[in-house]
Design a protein around this nucleic acid. Structure first.
Lengths: 141, 141
DNA sequence: TCAATTTGTATCAGTAAGTGTTACAGAAGT
DNA sequence: ACTTCTGTAACACTTACTGATACAAATTGA
């Protein structure tokens, strides 16, 4: 399996929840649609729950539902809740401070990083879960 | 060391090359500024060379220089040459095709992915290596 | 109260990617 | 020839994600 597909799975799961409105969906059922293990789904739902996007209930007839209407959940929130939010990372080790470039490049890259990440966030905030539901609906054959 | 910092290191190295104009810089010297191993730098320069951003020469007095002026190298090109260019990944395994959401979500996410990646590319293409040089210069104390 | 269900979480193994290092063949200058 | 470099292979280490089993705690309902 490749890199970080958590955002994709999160959007998938949230769309399922949106389609079922107020009914609690179980991690087993969601995992069946995503084609993965229920624990993977529960871990992901844990992140979404911490971000107040979903509400989970333990016990019999438990499960997970959206915390609000899909038109009030932007993809930017989803992205933030399951990723570090950085398109690229800064240097692992600090560059050589005796070098004029090394001394100043980090600040430049940091500003650039923030700008890129903000751009991604703004783009994602243009879409809500309701938009995704609609697109999925239109894609139906 | 953390995630993918290759873009940061690439911009760092290219800025060094830009500052030294036509002189060949050695991987040892560049590694000293980045604070890493020469082989790491040479691997990175290999990518940049394949993308025709730099020219390397083997042998004594060898090294690497830019293939063109820094005002003609956009950060989008740099980004493309050292990363997969995807802000988020699609599903690892294909979702359950018997589920209405599973059947259609991939296409929706793929469109969204392309749009986000294009947005990042457009933002990065607003900056050239010459802009970075200037910002680094201004940051000097 | 007791049994069944379901989440939350710990734990472990497997996979993939990036990093750092040593080593060495081949190219090129003197 | 000898020295200096790049290009690259090989290996160990770390980190992150995925997938799986296991079980405590919560909740429902009989």
């Amino acid at each position: 399996m490749a890199a970080n597909s958590q955002f994709s799975v999160a959007v998938h799961v949230l769309t399922m929840l949106a389609n079922s409105r107020d009914a609690n969906l179980k991690s087993d059922y969601l995992a069946g649609s995503v084609n993965t293990n229920p624990v993977v789904v529960r871990r992901l739902l844990g992140n979404l729950s911490q971000a107040n996007l979903v509400i989970s209930q333990t016990g019999a007839n438990g499960g997970t539902r959206l915390s609000r209407g899909p038109e009030n959940i932007s993809l930017a929130e989803v992205y933030r809740s399951v990723s570090c939010g950085e398109v690229f990372a800064l240097h692992g080790k600090s560059p050589n401070q005796d070098c004029p470039v090394g001394r100043n490049i980090e600040a430049v890259l940091c500003r650039l990083q923030k700008e890129i990440d903000r751009t991604v966030g703004e783009k994602l905030s243009q879409y809500t879960l309701a938009d995704v539901m609609e697109m999925v609906e239109q894609g139906k054959v």
